[in-house]
Design a protein around this nucleic acid. Structure first.
Lengths: 362, 362
DNA sequence: CCTACGATTGAGACCGGACTCACACCGATT
DNA sequence: AATCGGTGTGAGTCCGGTCTCAATCGTAGG
């Protein structure tokens, strides 16, 4: 009932100084905890601050320290648990060092990303963690880097950019898991990804995402090594909506020379693929084998539980945040960030391809 | 190769003004797009800005406009898809109106929440959307509200606070779904929640979360109406980790007078409960019926698909953001926010309780 | 030709802190 | 007693914008 008259305009150091009968400079020192202040003054100031319910204006503080204690995080889709977990790793780590996180969603749209970076920079974030929508179109990121703003890439590399990058070594795990499928007898292995392209996939099509092209490379290596032809016709991109994913899945499985195994490039895709398979009345792994990237908890609940490629997502978020904070705090030496590795978790969704007597393996 | 010397210190209005040969004031007007500026000046200034690659310092701008175009979002756990989706709804909506989002995770810890609010306020966010960890301990929220800062509660109500609140009407849906279970023949219905308490549950224990107590109320009503005794002994709180959830599930199902149906209060809990049930070698719904809050996509993939209570989470995020922005923009009339309603999605995880001939129903 | 009014314009105050600088104090040195 | 080094202190500048205010300019009205 006392401070109700305080309409708008909040308490400032000047107010506190006046109340404590000291100069603004002294009050600021006592409150900001810097410089030399006598015990007597400090006490009076703190008491006055408490009394007036003073709260520092971080904006003002940021203005002349040049640090906002805020980092910007730009991801394609928070709704995707993959990023949800990574974000959690980032925020947890940031909080420990006193940083806040401004989160921006880009819907995997580069234009939105360019914009997000601009806004974040205008807000003077101390650094950026970005999961770039494109590994190719990275001029805006180069801009950030050149301007000296700390920057860390998450999940995807940008070949042209020499920046701290926290990502999983994809070629290897892709090779490993593809080889596994081949060993099980598969040669018609499909790969479905969200990645947007103007034209349908063909061998050699440059892929926007380092992650996806690395996976393709791994698959190629496995096929080459096995002396099998690349099933390029089974690579499907632009799998955006659940509907399109289901449609693609149906096509892959119902065409004359169908896929016998499907690799989903992320959990969201996997979800719809499995659903489509169930809708078709097909059984995993008897009719079709299934493998997906990201080890979400629910993959253990399906019948059979799904074989997945587990990525240390949370840890990567943590690593990204740590690397960024290291940069922000100026400790040069961009301590080589360890490359994270994914692991193939074999559960029950991969088996031998169905025996379709008569259909040549080509 | 030209602007490489520009170490640190970025371009300011003053620089632009000098380059354009006009006063700082005029340059600021042209750039900020306010006040009167002649076409000639505007052109020169914009050209100079372009040339120098000028970018406004939003911090400085915020300082004297008093608006940061940033809203703070405080949730218990972004990792939980429930909040992931809601956050998506919030950020999507905020972006449309030009607002950014600072996201803070509290781990459902009130102390962390108090702190988060403080930090956000210090950063002068224009408003806050909070999913309060406690519906009871809300002094900090009252503080925010009294100070006049726009505030919207998400997901949970705070009885003492008259603030825009976006939440699902829980009592009703809980009553409806419990009645459904009772109709199917269940009377031993367990309820598992993450909510933290100091003591185990007993009838009348005040619950921190309005959401949970409303659900309990709905269950009570259903039991009362059916003339059945309340299975208070089957209410289990403090289900934090997957391990504890599994332990609780085992206890509920293996005790002398076991539960025949389990209601999981959110998707994360549901996940572990189902896993525990599978581990026990029991089958849903033959051995035990299952119902969970939140309709995640994966619930359609299990065998059988799970019966769930779907909540319009994304829409709630949108509504919360819209309400907040409305407050920020000063349009008074806190347009009564429609209460959102959840729907019972009947799939296959609820059936009749197993026939345990001999065990009295008490 | 003179006056009035709206459009322009520049100087400078201001937002709320951090920080520089000059100066007063005080006990310790020599 | 004069000097030295360190602690306290207040005045005032600065950060990078926004905004007020008074002065200036151009020209339509009388």
């Amino acid at each position: 009932m006392s401070n109700d008259a305080s309409r708008r305009r909040d308490v400032t150091v000047a107010d506190v100084a006046k109340a404590a009968q000291v100069s603004k400079a002294q009050a600021a020192r006592a409150l900001g905890n810097y410089g030399a202040v006598s015990d007597d003054v400090r006490e009076r100031v703190l008491a006055a601050a408490e009394e007036l319910n003073y709260r520092p204006n971080e904006l003002a503080r940021s203005m002349n320290t040049g640090k906002s204690n805020t980092i910007g995080v730009v991801v394609g889709d928070i709704e995707n648990p993959h990023f949800g977990l990574a974000t959690r790793g980032i925020t947890d780590t940031a909080k420990k060092s006193g940083f806040n996180v401004i989160l921006v969603n880009t819907d995997e749209d580069t234009a939105a990303e360019v914009d997000a970076v601009k806004v974040l920079l205008d807000k003077r974030v101390d650094g950026l963690i970005i999961a770039p929508a494109s590994s190719v179109d990275t001029r805006h990121l180069e801009g950030v880097h050149k301007s000296g703003r700390p920057l860390v890439l998450l999940d995807r590399k940008a070949p042209g950019l020499v920046v701290d990058t926290v990502a999983v070594e994809m070629e290897g795990i892709s090779y490993e898991s593809t080889s596994y499928l081949i060993q099980e007898g598969h040669s018609r292995i499909a790969f479905i990804s969200t990645i947007r392209t103007d034209e349908p996939y063909f061998a050699g099509l440059p892929l926007e995402s380092s992650q996806i092209s690395d996976r393709r490379d791994g698959m190629k290596r496995a096929f080459d090594e096995a002396g099998l032809p690349q099933p390029e016709d089974l690579v499907r991109l632009n799998a955006g909506s659940p509907e399109s994913i289901k449609k693609i899945t149906r096509e892959l499985l119902q065409q004359p020379h169908p896929a016998t195994a499907i690799i989903a490039s992320d959990g969201l895709i996997g979800l719809s693929v499995v659903e489509a398979i169930q809708d078709l009345g097909l059984s995993i792994p008897d009719d079709v084998s299934f493998l997906m990237y990201d080890d979400f908890a629910w993959t253990r609940l399906t019948t059979p539980p799904l074989t997945v490629i587990a990525q240390p997502v949370y840890e990567m978020g943590v690593a990204a945040a740590e690397a960024l904070i290291r940069q922000i705090q100026g400790r040069k030496a961009p301590v080589a960030i360890p490359e994270f590795s994914a692991t193939l978790v074999r559960r029950g969704s991969i088996g031998s391809p169905p025996n379709r007597g008569g259909i040549p393996v080509n």
